[in-house]
Design a protein around this nucleic acid. Structure first.
Lengths: 352, 352
DNA sequence: CTGAAAGCGCTAACAT
DNA sequence: ATGTTAGCGCTTTCAG
């Protein structure tokens, strides 16, 4: 009664081996492993012993195929090295584990085509939930494809979760966990305005990505509230990378636009801004105030430590998993907006 | 011929639905999907059409169960938010995708017990490779358990990969991808010594974790080479966290030990060191030289930018996947040590 | 409490 | 080139 040899020539201990060794039937072994059905103590002991002796582990695929339960959560993200995503991932992973799930992770490098391909792949895996993180494409075509996936997943008993990106529409079966992106931008811009800043540059509008657009809206609404007309030429489009912050700031400095504060769309961009300012001999915050967005750990290491908008990263990830998995329970909403708030550090002062 | 309804009440399009719709047999559908067998163009077209109309995706579990190939790579890491791990993860994910694999990610928070549990779980998943990243436990018991897993995975046709952690022994079937941890520490310590530093503190020895022990060895060997006796009281044990760097430096300063350089075991620790130095009014590098280890992106944002040891993170991850998956091909080694090198930035100067 | 029987969705011989 | 026949390893009725 040695283990069978599979087609590929590998020996793998199966439930049948265990059953033979323990002198019981296959379903009995299944029952003691699952532990959800009465089994005589003596029988259980025999089976457990056989399992240990044979070093048996269940085949997750056979289990998924026979039962209905996959016990995996898929997590799709632009780039796992970005602290913003990594911290959400952390929350997802923790909650998934708490709920007894394994976590599949895929990165898309921000490519909408790859995102679509990855979601398709997750559909094959029958994940209990597919969590999409980070600014999505605003192209109508991609939006439609995503709506399609939401329905496909729903019909398959799975769930699409949009985490930190806008909802797809009213009748789309999806869970959405947002953070108050626009509100955070509004608050930190107001902070600047209330201190007397009137010429505030906004760096990092990424066309077609909702995240930056919403942040810009917050910036604009704050200006309206304070009844100041923002100078549209102070809004610079670019990437979310450090180098963009550096370049854009150099330009701004060269142009002598009388800017007294810079709102970088992300902390990473702000790091580039600070660097350019230092290179240009501009004192922060004395000569120029700088704020960022995201509140990643890096902000504390910057010189000076950066005033920024805090996003509840972990909470976002945990909530996404929790809401998706418990969506059939009552009182579990399927759309929440988590709050953001300004974290005041040392990079802001009133204008001279 | 609508889709069947599974036990759990979900309708899912299966290969049978497609076959019926296209008016062919199930294996024919399988063949066009796999694309590894001759199928008449007309038949293929019919099948493709049915697939599109039914929005069919293959069930990865059924596929894994029937065939031998799982097409997943598991990746086990302490903490995905640590840049060190995130960058390796990036390499793993990229290479896995290149090789047509999905990536399972699990975090252990550095807990050896959880690591063991996770590896067990990966065994159930039948991943093609299980990649363990980061300093492992030096406890003999855990080592034995890991050796056991290496054999179990091997017998199951999978592969244990140790990435950035030491090999388990000569006859253990595992792939190991290391970086020259000791060599990097030797080089950067030599850099300091050659500039004339004689009292160099080493911060961040984490007992029981090989990574820090090897770095300490490099530090010591460099001293021997330069024929200087290192002061053992200058070696401080602690965590790899920022706070440890801060605290340890405050102590060092308070003790007035005539230290002229600090070797922090990681860049994160170095960030804490720099912070403490700034708080204490100590100029870097004029009054104190500081070096780190890892070369994470943060180092460039520190003030001053940190001289550190570069680790080829991406390469480590990619190599791990490549070597494991191609282990049966000739000329693919199963143990490599990737090089590290000192990156000189602005945190080091000769002692006063 | 336990066993026998059926089937999850797919692939891989074996036929034709 | 296509269909037929067997499973892969497990769970879940249904009997006893």
């Amino acid at each position: 009664m040695a283990q069978r040899v599979a087609r590929n020539g590998r020996k793998r201990t199966t439930i049948t081996d265990v059953a033979e060794r323990a002198g019981v039937s296959v379903p009995t072994v299944s029952r003691v492993v699952a532990g959800n059905y009465p089994v005589a103590a003596a029988t259980r002991a025999k089976v457990m012993r056989a399992i240990r002796e044979l070093d048996y582990v269940a085949n997750a695929h056979a289990r998924a195929l026979a039962g209905a339960t996959t016990k995996t959560v898929a997590f799709v993200v632009h780039d796992i090295t970005a602290p913003f995503f990594a911290h959400i991932a952390q929350g997802v992973e923790e909650q998934a584990r708490t709920e007894g799930r394994t976590c599949l992770v895929c990165t898309t490098q921000g490519d909408p085509a790859r995102e679509l391909a990855v979601v398709e792949q997750m559909r094959e895996q029958h994940a209990d939930a597919v969590i999409l993180v980070g600014g999505g494409s605003e192209l109508e075509e991609n939006r439609q494809r995503m709506i399609h996936f939401a329905h496909a997943l729903d019909e398959a008993g799975s769930r699409l979760v949009l985490c930190g990106r806008p909802a797809l529409g009213a009748n789309v079966p999806a869970t959405v966990v947002e953070y108050d992106n626009e509100g955070g931008a509004f608050a930190i811009t107001s902070h600047l305005l209330s201190l007397g800043h009137r010429r505030i540059a906004f760096l990092g509008l990424e066309e077609g990505f909702t995240t930056s657009v919403e942040r810009l809206h917050g910036y604009q609404r704050a200006h309206e509230t304070f009844r100041v007309d923002p100078d549209p030429t102070l809004v610079r489009a670019g990437s979310f990378f450090r180098s963009f912050g550096y370049e854009a700031t150099r330009e701004l400095l060269a142009e002598q636009r009388d800017v007294t504060a810079i709102f970088a769309a992300t902390d990473i961009v702000a790091a580039g801004v600070l660097h350019a300012l230092r290179d240009g001999g501009v004192q922060v915050p004395a000569d120029m105030s700088v704020v960022g967005y995201d509140d990643i750990p890096l902000t504390m290491e910057l010189t000076p430590p950066l005033t920024t908008v805090h996003i509840p990263h972990d909470e976002l990830g945990r909530t996404a998993v929790r809401m998706a998995l418990h969506r059939h329970e009552e009182a579990v909403p399927q759309h929440v907006v988590l709050g953001t708030h300004t974290v005041v550090r040392d990079s802001v002062a009133p204008p001279r």
